[in-house]
Design a protein around this nucleic acid. Structure first.
Lengths: 207, 207
DNA sequence: ACCTGAACACCGTTCAAGT
DNA sequence: ACCTGAACACCGTTCAAGT
């Protein structure tokens, strides 16, 4: 795709993102990347020292625009919501990248981590609770995208006509609803529940 | 390890679990499994049709003992806690298996999904909220184990002696606390926050 | 300085063949 | 019925070599 030579780190990251968005993050191999760049399989290694390194750069690019909301008029729950909404939007736009970020809490872009931690700290959480609250938010935000709400391509359940059995099985009743809800619905419910839980935690500590 | 022949599905699953516990889930390849079983690389394929299939069986084994708490005297938040504590214990004992379960919400053992959903439904959530609450709990429980609280093996921060700069950077202040807290601390805070958030959601709907 | 090519040590899986 | 062996189409990465 990129006909530009010589290679640059920027071009490599762009190509990686292009592969991820087109074929999914599981299809991004160093070899697929080299095909995208129309260079030999080892060319990118002159610029990045490993695939992990490359993924860190990709994550950096995706989260580059995240900034703490400049809305001192709002309470911390609303400000937290505005902040994580930005992250969610970035992840939603770059499908698959959330998975990359999940297990790298320590490599999270410093500005993103700082924005969330400062907000929590100002809200009144002590340092230890900031750690745990951050970890909780991190796990939810970046873990979300690994969880699939689409059922596997198994034989689809026959539409129409009452199922022959087990109308008292809650799983049979609820499971069909999974794909009916949109990613946005899951996110809204999830993050709202988290924020309310955090508010409650704070109330319990400072009565 | 297993000198028993012929192979059985049970022996294969046991061997897979042994590899996972010894070397981590990322080291479980079909070839490593065959080494563990002391058979040829393809032997296991007579019993499982793919690696994914095998991982489903492993997950099934790990979660086999989970059961809804028989404590009708307790309120739903306490019952939910007893239920997910069992799952957490199973995941903690079988390191790495949480990762396998994360992206397979639809393959979750039916009895586990049912136990959680029934509890939520009895608590008063409508079907749609049961879906979203289940997804939230699933994401947290199984996603947790992907998030590493141990910093990468980078040059360790010099112990003792004030850091030269940026004592106003909250990340520099907070990050060292990550490895100080135990997995149990993160879990307690996380699940407590979730449950309290869910309680609040219910209160808001039924005032 | 920047890129290539061959090679190494791996994967999951198919398919024909052995017992 | 149960297992093996060779082979295919992949990986990430090292290392020496080319320009």
């Amino acid at each position: 795709m990129s006909a530009t030579r010589p290679l640059t780190e920027e071009a490599i990251v762009s190509a990686a993102l292009a592969v991820i968005e087109r074929d999914g993050v599981e299809s991004l191999s160093m070899r697929a990347l080299s095909r995208e760049l129309a260079v030999s399989p080892m060319a990118a290694y002159y610029y990045v020292k490993s695939k992990e390194d490359l993924l860190d750069l990709v994550a950096e690019r995706v989260l580059a625009g995240i900034a703490p909301p400049a809305r001192p008029d709002l309470e911390w729950p609303a400000r937290l919501r505005l902040l994580v909404d930005q992250i969610e939007a970035a992840l939603r736009h770059h499908r698959g990248i959330g998975d990359v970020l999940l297990d790298r809490m320590h490599n999270t872009q410093r500005h993103v981590m700082r924005a969330i931690m400062e907000l929590l700290s100002e809200a009144g959480f002590d340092d230890q609770d900031v750690v745990m609250a951050y970890a909780l938010i991190h796990t939810y935000l970046f873990g979300r995208y690994r969880v699939t709400t689409q059922p596997p391509p198994k034989p689809s359940p026959p539409l129409g006509g009452e199922g022959p059995t087990e109308d008292e099985d809650i799983v049979a009743r609820i499971r069909p609803l999974f794909p009916k809800l949109r990613g946005r619905d899951y996110y809204d419910f999830g993050i709202e529940t988290l924020v309310q839980g955090l508010q409650r935690q704070l109330e319990l500590k400072r009565p």
